[in-house]
Design a protein around this nucleic acid. Structure first.
Lengths: 371, 371
DNA sequence: GAGACGGTTGCAATCGTTTCCAAGAACGTT
DNA sequence: AACGTTCTTGGAAACGATTGCAACCGTCTC
């Protein structure tokens, strides 16, 4: 496998009998006579010439690469984002460099600092925990940055966020409308950004509905996994008798359904279950899982668009995009028997598409519709 | 957000009052007096200097980037591979560039050719369909290439492959041992490389067991999805009465279980089901799904290792690594009632770890054990 | 004390492009 | 016929690092 070394522009120019300058222009479409273009093209083709990306980048000060940093490449939420981002980015002629930051914040900072080495023209990052140190680092990065996640209002960075509090409220309202009265909440770890936001969302929704929140109806799993969800739900059931469960995550919801089944409770007849993130899993469970879609694909797409916009127009004002949640109703939250009798037509339709975001949302939204 | 432009080595040298050459050496740890190192370090720190990756790459002729090309970034099999690859690659100091080739072969060729631009030091590619044109292109690439997938024996390329035929045989044997006699096969599209290999595997296994293969026991879904699996299984059940199902994919298996449930058949009491790929899904279904693990993580890890090896030692002979399948037994394939009575101790243990591959397999294998 | 030697240091070339600039050619205008 | 335009073209200087080479310094040895 003789790794043949690639011909340079110099050799092409030599072969064509012209100067490198002319060769460069001929190939890049700048002013050159048709005859010149022809000669150079021919020589280039004959030698199999392809311009070297590194040399070119050095000169034009652009790498045509964009970086994406997420905690875990295998997390379905990030996978969805990544796919959306890759689509936008590669359509714009950029390559995508991915890095997993893992779970610790130092690593995130190292990644950001690494960007200063100039191997990419921009960075999309979704930090697990948003510490002041991370923000500082992002603010002083040497390339444009877009943050996916909730950062303080005052920080002048392009930013895409979900509205998980509103998502919880949608779920809560949906369950109330379905005749559920004792709605419990299975959260993930509270020391994470999403865990915290979702808990606040639930408290607010419960408070709005009943004027108080019953702390026994809230449980936190150790982790955002099915096993943790199952365990937490068992703890919950020991002290509280819900007729509906909101879970901070689809995986937690799957665990919860498992626990319910073991207790002999049927879903949705006895207990309705709503998950969150609307991953592919929601379609695959039995019963299929009603889930709050937080728009991962759309967030990814918006972030990529924002980044491209800033690259093209570095001085524009920073913008903050909030992607609105949608409730995707499936079987696990069918109205309780009693309600079904009295009010047969429950809103099986999804909540209003509810994106107050602008035009290009359509494409990504579509890809998320039937997940 | 004033994107401050980064200081160059020149400025550092100026600030330290030394030549660029010395500055470069001081920072890169080459021969330099302690005093010199100190001065340059200080100046670099004061200015916040970080060497420019592009310029460095141009000079040293290495980008410290490796590329991964797969058809679909969201496919769980690829996600698993990608995560494994990212781990190996970033531990070795490389960044990972990912590209989605989509489903058409032309795009694959374009990707490979793009590699000639020299933006990465190596390529791992998992082509959907392996055409002669693709092989040609790979052979003449200007950087080392590792192919994940089955390529002709004669092709001199580093190669990592699964053994899906053997995987099917494992499943078949397991089902026979569990007392199943009418084993059917739910395949994916046959015009794909995996679809084709898995079908051949099933034919061979069935033939070995019964001396013939009943064509009515074989059905092909249009796609590797749960819906397609459900549909195909319904077609199958209309003409054949299996007591076990091997599915070419976990998603197909989930669809199949859905179809069986609708027909009032219970899993595993009436019909055992075995999936393939051993994705996270297998742990999440009810009953949990027995699945053939084809070692995505291990394949990824092996491919990455192979690529690094070749980069370090370009002239070594090409090697072909076959990752052996393992059967991960879960609830969906518990022995049929009759057998359970007579031979109570069915092999609940997994099949022999069965990787004839060498040492570094351990790590990735572990991460795949309890999926 | 002279020469040899090991270790630092700076100069300058180099990697493969792009692009500024000036020179030249071709052409039209007065 | 001379001049001004416009268009092409080649020379050469970047881009920001690394590195071969030669100069230099101090020390040690004979």
């Amino acid at each position: 496998m003789p790794q043949r070394s690639r011909p340079t522009l110099n050799e092409v120019a030599l072969a064509a009998g012209v100067s490198v300058a002319s060769a460069s222009r001929a190939l890049s479409g700048a002013s050159a006579s048709p005859e010149m273009v022809e000669r150079v093209r021919a020589a280039a083709a004959a030698l199999g010439y392809v311009a070297d990306a590194t040399a070119r980048s050095l000169k034009v000060r652009r790498t045509e690469q964009l970086a994406l940093a997420v905690a875990d490449l295998a997390n379905p939420v990030y996978v969805t984002m990544m796919r959306a981002i890759e689509g936008v980015v590669s359509a714009a002629g950029y390559r995508l460099v991915v890095t997993a930051t893992g779970t610790d914040a130092d690593n995130e900072i190292a990644t950001i600092r690494g960007m200063s080495r100039g191997y990419a023209d921009g960075l999309i990052i979704s930090p697990l925990r948003i510490t002041p140190a991370v923000i500082d680092e992002l603010l002083s990065a040497s390339v444009p940055v877009v943050v996916i996640g909730t950062i303080p209002q005052s920080v002048a960075l392009d930013n895409v966020r979900a509205n998980s509090m509103r998502g919880i409220r949608l779920a809560h309202a949906h369950l109330l409308a379905g005749g559920r009265a004792s709605i419990a909440f299975v959260n993930g770890p509270i020391n994470t950004t999403p865990g915290d936001a979702r808990l606040r969302g639930f408290r607010r929704a419960a408070d709005a509905a009943h004027g108080k929140v019953d702390e026994r109806a809230i449980v936190s799993a150790d982790d955002f996994t099915a096993d943790a969800g199952e365990k937490a739900t068992r703890v919950l059931l020991a002290r509280y008798t819900p007729d509906a469960l909101i879970c901070a995550n689809d995986l937690l919801a799957i665990g919860a359904m498992r626990a319910l089944r073991q207790e002999g409770k049927s879903v949705p007849a006895d207990v309705a279950v709503v998950g969150m993130d609307n991953t592919e899993l929601a379609d695959l469970t039995t019963p299929t899982l009603t889930s709050v879609c937080l728009g991962s694909a759309e967030r990814g797409m918006r972030a990529a668009t924002l980044l491209l916009d800033r690259i093209n127009e570095p001085d524009r004002a920073t913008s903050r995009v909030t992607v609105q949640p949608r409730l995707v109703v499936r079987d696990s939250s069918a109205a309780s028997a009693v309600t079904r009798a009295t009010a047969p037509a429950t809103t099986r339709a999804t909540a209003p598409a509810a994106t107050r975001t602008t035009a290009p949302a359509a494409q990504a939204a579509k890809s998320e519709r039937r997940r």
